[in-house]
Each structure stands twice: as structure tokens, then as C-alpha cells.
Design a protein around this nucleic acid. Structure first.
Length: 591
DNA sequence: CGTCATGTAAACATAT
DNA sequence: CATATGTTTACATGAC
């Protein structure tokens, strides 16, 4: 039933714009590709589409998202540019408006943030092999995007602004709204409705091109998943001398199986999370502009950069901008963008002030490459209110291990949470309680009293002990993991999982064990970094061996007397720890 | 279906 | 007394 519906839409919608490319054997309903996960859960998708279709759909969606994102960035930046220029006018009018400087700064920051976001997204895509790397290694991914406001441009702008600020006062009559919208009609793109086809012809062309290029048989010279002589499939770095070899590799190693489809879904999620963040940022920008009277509450042209109806982009949309046919979700600005859980009901889920219990411990079971994941995405989590896909226990541990002393007070743990994750800047009572609960509950957290209070440390051995059997990366397991994620916080978790299997990290030291296939042992990150005895003696905090007084949690059926419980783990020979991924660098902190 | 890990809530104790 | 810090219990959920 659903399938028919979709296919029906597909045939109606995909045709107009696909004139240019020879559709590969598989007809892919564009509308399906456009469909946000809220509309169709991954599981449903799999049921609805044949594997081949699914694969194609995913590719399409990636392409669409990328394209739309690029356009969106571009428009956003054009707007910003204009805003800055407009601000200049205001500056003239307001003579010595002292707050102007702040406004400039705010805009500048916003703009920079946009650019960062842009880069981040591209990095992500690149990492996943979705965007071919530029030949010049050092080049920024930003190159892939339309001309943006370069730092120098920005400087120039600000310079002009500050200059103009000093002279004359003009009547405050500049109609910024019209100046913006009229001079940049292109920016007025109505948000693609959920079920509509391609937003515009250009996209269609892009998509077609993308799609065809993704079918190596059509464009043998290049492949988005092939670059620099290696396979760029997420988590795979297999070396392939030439395209032929690569194609062979692709067909054998990344055939259409559970694992591959799961990976595709995860990739979708990666993109989606970024979009959510993007939506939020643009929303914030919008609010800023509105506040500055630059743009009287006009429906923002780019409120919905992409096809998804994420809670982020929805929640604060004004009623009039709401896509037809969609019930407007309660406007709860405070509702966390908890990664869409039940897949189909982001909207409804966002209506609840507090998300119910959220299951997302996959990563933990997946060996919690939390630190490597964090290394990659901590910027993301810092800014996006996305619930990190880690358990409280692993987060607490990470917080503690992040410090030179491997010990933190409760309050410092709190601070780490709020510093590292935007998500934990709300509902403090809830998660703080959870943190305390975890600290008390898990034997791996050891409370050490010192002169002024107490600090918490991690008994790594104990922590490892509680971990379930390692995962082998079997397709089934991967699949389970993915679906178990409730489609929400996959992004990180999956990347993290892949990281263990030699994920090419862009911003972290090269892995030592890049095998390219299969997940090698599960490791949990960090541990290595520091065994206590190591150098680093300068501990501001009392490093005096935990001695003072240690509260050993009771063990129901203690097998061994755990002598090692207090000794710096480290010599747990039986535990094959990877401890390599961990960028020893304690992941610089935020201000 | 039972068990386990986890998240959430809450009661309670103790220290500051 | 209020708050922070811990501990513990209860319950729900999802994975296995």
C-alpha cells in the first residue's frame, strides 16, 4: 500500500527533471529520496523499496541534500552579506549607536558559524566519501561550495561598516526587507514541501549528474566513492589501483547487504543531523535579524533548507510558513531535538517538553569509541542540541579521563557535560540526577575523598569488565545497531563505530591499524592516554594517589578481590584495548 | 518471557 | 534552613 503510494508519487514527480540522465536500471522515486525519515522509517523504507532501489534512493538523497545544502549556504551567505551592508546603513543613521559594534560582532560570529558549519558538513561528507576530495590535499572542502563570503570580504565589510559608523546621521528609513528580498529574489525560495518533487531544475540536473556519476558504469573516470586510490566508502580505506579494481571492490565489499544499507542509513542520519543544526543556526540568525529590525518577521525564505521536516526547523516556524497538510507542531522552543526516535513521529515527539526515556546505548555496545567520536564531532555536539549517543556512564568516564588527573568533582563533571554538549544545557535536573545516579551505581566510578571534598575517578578495569562482548561487525549486528538507534543519534555512534575499523579521521592522528575491513577489536578510546603513573605530575588537584579514603562499592558476587581496582588499570593484559584512537590531546575545551 | 543495561524519577541521607 | 552531593529504590524501555 505504502509502496504503491510512493511509487505513484515517484513516477509523477521524478519524470519532469530527469530528462538529462539515463536512468540506471533502477528507477528511483525521487520523492522517496526526498522523504524525510520522519515520514518513512528506515525499516519501512527497506520494506517498501527493493534493495537496489533503496541504494539508489540513498544516493539520491545524499546528492539532493548536498545540493540543497550548498544552495542554502549560498543564500544564507548572500543574505548575511546584505545584512552586513544594511547594517552599515543603519550605522550611518544611528550615528553613535554604541550597540552597533556588538551587532556587527554578532553578525560576524553568526557568519563565521555558518561557514564553520558549512565546513563541518563538507568534512563529514568527505569523510564518508560522499564528496570527492580535492586533488590538492590541503584545500578546504569549502571549495566545493559556491563562492562564499571570504574572511577578507568580511573584514572589508566590517571595515567599511566601522568607517561609515562615524559619519552622518540619516533618517532611519531604509527598508531592509525590500532591499533584501528584491535585490535577491533568488533567496526567496519557498521551502520544498514534503511531497513535492525537486525544488528546482538546477537541483534536478545536479541530482541527475550525481546519480549518474555514482554509477561507475556510466562515468568510469571518476566515482564519488573513489579517490586517491582508495575506496572512500565510510569506514573503508581499501586501496584500489584503478577504477576497475575499485569497482570490483565495491561490488564485493560493499554489495547490497544489511551492512551497506545500514551504512547508508547512517549516512542519511549524518546529513540530517547537520541539517538540523543548520536549521537552528539559521533560525537563530533570523531571530537576530528580526530583533535588529532588519527583517520584520517575514517568513524566512530559507526556513527549510532541505526536504526534511525536522523538529528543529519546524518548531519555530511561523504558522504561515508551515507546509500544507502538515499539522503544526506545538511550538516548543525548548524541546530538545532529541534525535528522532520512533522514526515517524518527530513532530509529535517534539511536543513533549521532556523526552521520555531514550535508548541509545548502541555505541556502548559497540565499544564506545566515544573519544574518537567526540574528537570528530565535539564541535557538532557543542552547538547542536543533539543528544549524544553515549551512555551517561561513558560520558562521565570520558569527562574524567579528559582531565590530566583523571579525576573530577561532581560539579566539574556537570560542567564538562554542559561544555561539551549543547544538549545538556537544558533539563539540568534530569541529567544531573542521572549523572549522580550513574556515579553511585556503577562500580567503575570510584569516589575519592580529598581534603576539600571528593573527586570521582574511573576504575578502568571495572569499566571494561562491565562491557559486553565485542562486536564483530557482522551485518546483522550492524543492522541491529542501526535500527536500535531509533534512527536518531546514529550519526555519531555509527561514525564512531566505524572509526574503530579504521575510519579515516580527518582531524585526528592517523590510525595505526587501518585495516580497511571489518571491525577489529573493539576498543574504547581513551584509556590509553593515561595511565596515572605517567608523567604529567603537575596536577593542580591533589594527585596524591587516591589513597585518602575510597569508597568501594559493593560487589554482589565478587569473584576476585579486585586488587587492581585502584591501581591504574593499564595492565589489564586480558583486555585488548585499542587505546590508540584517542587523540591524546584532551580535546581542547571551550571558553 | 526473563534478564540485563540503561534512563528517569524520586525518596532519603549527609555534608556544606 | 537551603543546597549540593551521594545512595538507593522503583519503574519503564529496549536489547538479547
Amino acid at each position: 500500500m505504502a509502496r504503491q503510494l510512493l511509487l505513484q508519487q515517484a513516477t509523477g514527480l521524478s519524470s519532469p527533471n530527469n530528462t538529462e540522465n539515463k536512468q540506471p536500471s533502477v528507477q528511483v522515486p525521487v520523492s522517496v529520496a526526498m522523504m524525510s525519515p520522519q515520514m518513512i522509517t528506515p525499516q519501512q523504507m527497506q520494506q517498501i523499496l527493493s534493495p537496489a532501489q533503496l541504494q539508489a534512493v540513498l544516493q539520491q538523497q545524499q546528492a539532493i541534500m548536498l545540493q540543497q545544502l550548498q544552495e542554502y549556504y549560498k543564500k544564507q551567505q548572500e543574505q548575511l552579506h546584505l545584512q552586513l551592508l544594511s547594517q552599515q546603513h543603519i550605522g550611518k543613521q544611528q550615528s553613535k549607536e554604541s550597540s552597533l559594534g556588538n551587532k556587527q560582532l554578532a553578525f560576524q560570529q553568526q557568519l563565521i558559524q555558518m561557514q564553520q558549519l558549512q565546513q563541518q558538513h563538507l568534512l563529514n561528507l568527505q569523510r564518508q566519501g560522499l564528496v570527492g576530495l580535492q586533488s590538492g590535499q590541503g584545500t578546504l572542502p569549502i571549495q566545493n561550495l559556491p563562492p562564499a563570503v571570504s574572511p577578507s570580504d568580511l573584514q572589508q565589510l566590517l571595515k567599511e561598516m566601522s568607517n561609515s559608523q562615524e559619519d552622518s546621521n540619516k533618517p532611519d528609513t531604509v527598508d531592509l526587507t525590500t532591499s533584501i528580498t528584491t535585490s535577491f529574489p533568488s533567496a526567496k525560495v519557498s521551502p520544498p514541501s514534503m511531497l513535492s518533487s525537486l525544488p528546482n531544475g538546477q537541483n534536478a540536473m545536479q541530482i541527475s549528474r550525481r546519480e549518474s556519476s555514482s554509477h561507475y558504469d556510466i562515468c568510469p573516470s571518476s566515482h564519488p566513492l573513489y579517490g586517491h586510490g582508495e575506496c572512500r566508502w565510510p569506514g573503508c580505506e581499501a586501496l584500489c589501483e584503478d577504477m576497475g579494481q575499485f569497482v570490483k571492490h565495491l561490488n564485493t565489499e560493499h554489495a547490497l547487504d544489511d551492512r551497506s544499507t545500514a551504512q547508508c542509513r547512517v549516512q542519511m542520519q549524518v546529513v540530517q543531523q547537520l541539517e538540523i543544526q543548520l536549521a537552528k543556526e539559521s533560525e537563530r540568525l533570523q531571530a537576530m535579524m528580526t530583533h535588529l529590525h532588519m527583517r520584520p518577521s517575514e517568513p524566512k525564505p530559507f526556513s527549510q533548507p532541505l526536504n526534511l521536516v525536522s523538529s528543529a526547523s519546524i518548531t519555530k516556524m511561523s504558522p504561515d510558513t508551515f507546509p500544507d497538510g502538515l499539522p503544526q507542531p506545538p511550538t516548543s522552543a525548548t524541546a530538545p531535538i532529541t534525535p528522532l526516535r520512533q522514526g515517524a513521529s518527530v513532530i509529535s515527539s517534539s511536543s513533549l517538553p521532556s523526552p521520555g526515556p531514550v535508548r541509545r546505548r548502541i555505541v556502548d555496545k559497540f565499544c564506545t569509541p566515544i573519544s574518537s567520536e567526540l574528537a570528530q564531532n565535539h564541535e557538532f555536539y557543542k552547538n547542536a542540541e543533539v543528544r549524544p549517543p553515549f551512555t551517561y556512564a561513558s560520558l562521565i568516564r570520558q569527562a574524567i579521563l579528559d582531565t590530566p588527573d583523571r579525576q573530577l568533582t561532581l560539579n566539574e563533571i556537570y560542567n564538562w557535560f554542559t561544555r561539551m554538549f549543547a544538549y545538556f544545557r537544558r533539563n539540568t535536573a534530569t541529567w544531573k540526577n542521572a549523572v549522580r545516579h550513574n556515579l553511585s551505581l556503577h562500580k567503575c566510578f570510584v569516589r575519592v575523598e580529598n581534603v576539600k571534598g571528593a573527586v570521582w575517578t574511573v576504575d578502568e578495569l571495572e569499566y571494561q569488565k562491565r562491557r559486553p562482548p565485542k562486536m564483530t561487525g557482522s551485518p546483522t549486528l550492524v543492522k541491529n545497531m542501526i535500527s536500535g538507534l531509533g534512527y536518531g543519534a546514529l550519526n555519531a555512534s555509527y561514525q564512531a563505530a566505524l572509526a574503530e575499523s579504521s575510519f579515516p579521521l580527518l582531524n585526528s592522528p592517523p590510525l595505526l591499524h587501518s585495516s580497511g575491513s571489518g571491525i577489529q577489536g573493539c576498543h574504547d578510546d581513551v584509556t590509553s592516554t593515561g595511565e596515572p603513573g605517567n608523567s604529567n605530575g603537575s596536577s593542580p588537584r591533589l594527585s596524591p594517589q587516591y589513597s585518602q579514603s575510597i569508597h568501594v562499592k559493593e560487589e554482589p558476587a565478587e569473584e576476585d578481590t579486585r586488587p587492581a581496582s585502584l591501581t591504574p588499570t593499564n595492565e589489564n593484559t586480558n583486555l585488548p584495548e585499542d587505546r590508540d584512537l584517542e587523540p591524546e590531546t584532551p580535546m581542547e575545551d571551550l571558553p
